[in-house]
């Protein structure tokens, strides 16, 4: 009877460090598992794709509910700023409008000329383009990834590899597809590589994101002449994107690096168009 009070604390004294040790060990094991998951995540497997699709499907509706008030708040702020700058903006738009009317005339003339030349040459037209417009519902925080989650998925005809555009230019490529939501990898992301060419001179290159706002031009011929302001469009090489979609303009040229300013402000995307070019989907590595 006298022994009991003595043994009980000693057991506690023994188990407490043991439990702490076990807890520490389990945390360590989970950290190792996480790092292994990170490494394994680099490899694309169909199972991982399915899981990713399910997860974004599950959260997209909730995120959509969150995104709506955030967008409203942003619009209110924008409206105030716009009201302040109304006069100058009006002036600027008038000038731009005059300029654009001239361009419209030029475009109409060129279109007519192009049409007649095509009939002469018997060119096979590119397959018709269809698109779905989707709302951006999530824009993950973090310094390591540039993607957006959009509310359109397999049911809306979205497939992996399709191009995502804003009104003016390419913003990225679909990398994960769920039933009603999908993820677009922006051109600025670390893992984005898009075959492009400079409109001037048809010089080919690869547009490579590095998580900064302005992706780099890589694999450019060493004798290529590049100037600030040159337009960068997709080259269609590799069959991922059709040729000629505008992406951006050359923003800066230095000895070591050429950076491209995307046409779209990728930091405030509200809607994107996902384009279906009727490309053979089996080439893009997807099966319905």
């Amino acid at each position: 009877m006298a022994l009991k009070p003595r043994t009980a604390p000693s057991v506690v004294r023994l188990t407490a460090p043991l439990r702490a040790w076990a807890q520490r060990f389990s945390i360590f094991l989970f950290i190792v598992a996480s790092v292994m998951l990170m490494v394994a995540g680099r490899v694309d497997t169909p199972a991982a794709d399915t899981i990713r699709g399910r997860v974004i499907d599950a959260f997209a509706p909730i995120l959509e509910a969150f995104a709506a008030p955030a967008a409203t708040a942003a619009r209110v702020v924008d409206a105030v700023i716009e009201a302040r700058d109304l006069y100058g903006e009006n002036q600027r738009l008038r000038e731009q409008n005059a300029l654009l009317l001239q361009w419209q005339q030029a475009a109409l003339r060129l279109e007519a000329e192009n049409r007649s030349l095509r009939t002469l040459l018997n060119v096979r037209p590119d397959p018709a383009v269809s698109f779905v417009t989707a709302r951006v519902v999530a824009e993950p925080g973090g310094a390591f990834v540039r993607t957006v989650l959009v509310m359109a998925g397999r049911r809306n005809g979205v497939r992996r590899g399709q191009a995502a555009m804003s009104g003016v230019g390419v913003v990225g490529r679909v990398v994960e597809v769920g039933e009603w939501s999908s993820r677009v990898l922006l051109v600025t992301d670390l893992n984005a590589r898009i075959p492009v060419q400079l409109e001037e001179g048809r010089v080919r290159a690869v547009l490579a994101g590095d998580n900064t706002d302005r992706p780099r031009l890589m694999h450019l011929a060493s004798d290529a002449h590049v100037a600030v302001g040159d337009r960068v469009v997709t080259s269609g090489v590799g069959g991922m994107f059709p040729a000629g979609l505008p992406i951006g303009v050359v923003g800066s040229v230095t000895e070591r690096m050429i950076r491209v300013q995307p046409l779209t402000d990728l930091r405030r995307l509200e809607h994107v168009k996902i384009l279906d070019f009727g490309l053979p989907t089996n080439l893009l590595g997807t099966s319905p």
């Binding site: 990170m38 680099r42 974004i56 959260f59």
Partner: peptide, 12 residues
């Protein structure tokens, strides 16, 4: 998985 970053990064 929700944010599209490397799975395991936030877990670490």
């Amino acid at each position: 998985l929700t944010s599209g970053s490397m799975p395991g990064l936030t877990a670490v």
